[in-house]
Simulated assay, not measured.
Amino acid sequence: MSWARIMTPLSGGQGDKAAVEAAAMLAEPFGAELACVYTPADVADVMPWMGEGFLGGVQTTALESLKEAAQVGEANARTAMASCAYARSRFVALQTPVWAGLSGESRLSDVVVFNNDPARGRGPLAEAFQQMVADEQRPVLIAREGLKVGGTIAVAWDGGKEASRAARLALPLLEKARRVVILAAPKASSRTFDASRLQSYYATRGVETELDILPDTGDAAPVLLYAARKAEADILVAGAFGHPRLQEFIFGGTTRTLLNSEQPSLFLSH
């Protein structure tokens, strides 16, 4: 298996350079295309607030300011991409409707790369992160300091739908890893599962793994993070749990804990 297109949304802000570098690091071992997708604030989202009660001149000035900000942001995003110098980079500047364009780009990408801020609900790409995880159900990589492809990867496993999806979609990444450790906490799950089944699944695909059965606990997330650190994992693969509510994706407690941790980088799928 392989990945052919890695995508990273850009906002024109300070975090773009790190996001591009991380996405290029992920794309390089596969020779994949790197799509740097500039995702500006959408004028269409602002227009409803500028309906009744806004004078024509005020509305025009506000729209012009948004357009100018988008132009500056696009220039910054292009600079961030250029600073990386990955040969197979491609720049995409989204236009209104921005969210529809972002969805379309993600559907033709194998993985979407973010840095820490959007994953923690901060900055202009926070909504884009939730859109990718919840609405589009795309696999995302949250790149953190020390990200490395080809090192050690830990896979959180509970036999559930979300964990299974993440474990399957991460297979190209696991094939590049030096070491893969399956982390299972059966006592922290309401379901019954056999962790060795995932080990067999990987073995038939040429990926040798170690199995770490974690101790009894009422909260899986801290134990998973401790086990990932103990394994010196560069990336933790996990299912993203949450519920759509009032058009807002509400992450479950385990996922929130993983998102708020400092290390390691996360490969998530809902």
Results as ranks from 00 to 15, higher is better:
65 S>W: 09
117 D>I: 00
113 V>A: 08
18 A>M: 10
112 V>L: 02
131 Q>F: 12
21 E>M: 13
162 E>V: 01
37 V>A: 05
202 Y>C: 15
5 R>K: 15
222 P>W: 03
60 T>S: 10
231 A>V: 00
177 A>L: 04
158 D>S: 10
191 R>E: 14
243 H>A: 12
72 V>I: 11
147 L>M: 00
170 A>L: 02
80 A>V: 01
103 S>V: 07
253 G>E: 03
132 M>Q: 10
267 F>M: 09
212 D>S: 15
193 F>N: 11
151 G>K: 08
145 E>A: 11
4 A>G: 15
202 Y>W: 14
50 M>Q: 10
186 P>S: 07
258 L>K: 12
137 Q>C: 09
120 R>D: 00
34 L>K: 07
221 A>N: 10
130 Q>M: 12
184 A>C: 07
159 G>N: 10
176 K>H: 05
16 D>L: 04
88 R>M: 09
127 E>A: 09
115 N>I: 07
11 S>R: 02
236 L>S: 03
14 Q>A: 15
176 K>Y: 03
167 A>W: 13
195 A>G: 09
175 E>V: 00
8 T>P: 07
204 T>D: 08
83 S>W: 04
159 G>P: 01
61 T>Q: 13
43 V>P: 06
126 A>H: 09
158 D>E: 08
270 H>P: 15
255 T>K: 06
253 G>S: 13
256 R>P: 01
55 L>Y: 14
180 V>A: 02
168 R>L: 07
237 V>E: 01
216 D>N: 14
110 D>L: 07
233 A>E: 04
124 P>D: 07
151 G>P: 07
270 H>R: 11
269 S>G: 01
152 T>Y: 01
190 S>L: 03
109 S>H: 00
72 V>R: 09
37 V>E: 03
154 A>M: 12
269 S>F: 05
7 M>F: 00
22 A>D: 03
3 W>M: 15
57 G>D: 15
166 A>D: 08
193 F>Y: 14
75 A>V: 11
45 D>L: 14
206 G>Q: 11
84 C>V: 15
111 V>R: 12
242 G>L: 06
31 G>T: 12
124 P>Q: 05
